[in-house]
Structures are given as structure tokens and as C-alpha cells.
């Protein structure tokens, strides 16, 4: 989390501020949001391996995705330094997230006639926007030490039209330094388990899924504050 010398809000005050951030997430498009204690966030070394075995098309595509980014060990340090978080999700209809050939469409990056690529991209963009918005609001409220986690690969969402991630090309200037954050999964956070722990129904959606097989999909984000 970013360093700061200001005195953070007292615990009770912080709880109230987090609650207002939770409401804000809902107001601006989250399907559900919960204030959570940082110690329920599961960091699991297996999660990052799911990006690499087999190699996901996003793996190695941006500075956040495995094999780069935060190791599980690093994320554990970040999580243990945090106190509370706002965990939220954006619901995605199964007709979009489990659409036939959606995997191929995403991998190719070519828009499909059904508009699923653009629609899914919009859902991802909402996650990044909400994370950014909540962190900004938290800073205004005096919570300066925050870390955001979104979903997917920031290169695909924020730099879709650019050929490469600048960070991976050796530049220290990210094109979207304020918006770009690691995804939960790229940092080794077990988003599925966390969602289940807060009582949300999360379905495993793989490449061979059909829209009728799952009730819905969801994309998740987290803003951790300490």
C-alpha cells in the first residue's frame, strides 16, 4: 500500500467511512458490496499458477499478470498491512460471460457480431473505474493507504488499442497509472473463496461452459485500506 505519514482515521470512524464507500460502490454500479476485515482475504499460492498452467492469453501481457506482478508472498504482506476492505462485484449475464466461443473472441480481441466482447469489456471497465473511484474517495476522507485490486488484465481493459504494455517494454511510465491495478487473481487472492465467504454464489465458468449451465457470472474488485 502507498506510504503516508498522515494519521489514519480511528477504527470506528474508519468503519463508518468504509460503509460510505460500500454505498458508493452500489450507487455507481456494483451489484453488491460488503465491508470486510482484511484477515478474511485468502491469499493462495495456487491462484497465480492458474494463470500459467496452462498459459492464459493474458499471462505476461501486462506488468501485473503472472509471471510478473505481485507474488503471493508480496500480496500477503500487503493484506496483513491492511485493516478493512470494500469487496464488490458486478454481475454479468451468463449469455455474455459464458457465450459460445467467448474465449476465442476474447483471445483474438476481435469484436463479435453479438457484441459480447464490447459488453464484457464494459463490465471490466466498470470494475477498474469503481476501484479508482473508491480509492480517490477514501483519500479524500483521510484514508491514504489503500490498495486496489480489479479483475482481468489491465492491458486488455485500459490499453486495448495499444500493442504492448509500456511497463513491460522497459518504460517506468504506465499509460494509466491511476487506473491500473492488479487483478485479485493476478495477485494470488482467491476471489472465489472470498466471494463464498461473504455469501455470494460464484460459479466456475470455463471455456466449455454454455450460458444455460450457469445462472450468472460476476467480476469482482476490492479496495483494501489500512
Amino acid at each position: 500500500m502507498g506510504k503516508d505519514t498522515e494519521i489514519p482515521p480511528a477504527p470506528r470512524e474508519m468503519e463508518a467511512e468504509m460503509e460510505s464507500l460500500r454505498s458508493m460502490a452500489i450507487t455507481h454500479g456494483a451489484s453488491n458490496a460488503q465491508v470486510i476485515d482484511a484477515d478474511i482475504i485468502p491469499v493462495d499460492p495456487r491462484v497465480r499458477f492458474k494463470c500459467m498452467i496452462p498459459k492464459c492469453y493474458m499471462s505476461g501481457r501486462c506488468g501485473h499478470c503472472p509471471p510478473y506482478g505481485y507474488s503471493a508472498e508480496k500480496t500477503r504482506e500487503i493484506v496483513s498491512a491492511g485493516k478493512m476492505g470494500v469487496f464488490f462485484h458486478v454481475r454479468v449475464n451468463s449469455s455474455i460471460i459464458a457465450a459460445k466461443n467467448i474465449g476465442d473472441v476474447i483471445t483474438s480481441g476481435r469484436a463479435d457480431d453479438a457484441g459480447n466482447l464490447l459488453s464484457l469489456g464494459g463490465h471490466y471497465m466498470l470494475i477498474y473505474t469503481l476501484v479508482h473511484m473508491l480509492r480517490k474517495k477514501a483519500a479524500e476522507k483521510g484514508i491514504k493507504r489503500t490498495q486496489g485490486f480489479a479483475a482481468g488484465c489491465c492491458k486488455d481493459v485500459l490499453c486495448f488499442l495499444s500493442k504492448n504494455c509500456r511497463i513491460l517494454n522497459g518504460s517506468d511510465q504506465c499509460r494509466n497509472p491511476e487506473m491500473s491495478v492488479p487483478s485479485l487473481e493476478s495477485a494470488g487472492i482467491d476471489a472465489f473463496r472470498l466471494a463464498s465467504r461473504v455469501g455470494w454464489s460464484v460459479y466456475p465458468i470455463g471455456g466449455r461452459c454454455e450460458p444455460h449451465s450457469v445462472k450468472r457470472g460476476m467480476l469482482m474488485g476490492l479496495v483494501l485500506a489500512g
Partner: peptide, 17 residues
């Protein structure tokens, strides 16, 4: 995968989980 390279991650830790 021949051989796989995981510079930041420990496969043994993951498997033992």
C-alpha cells in the same frame, strides 16, 4: 512447459496447499 519458469512463484508451496 519445458521446463516451466515461475520466477516469482513457488510451485512446491502451491502443490503442498
Amino acid at each position: 512447459h519445458w521446463p516451466p519458469e515461475y520466477p516469482l512463484d513457488n510451485l512446491k508451496d502451491a502443490l503442498m496447499s
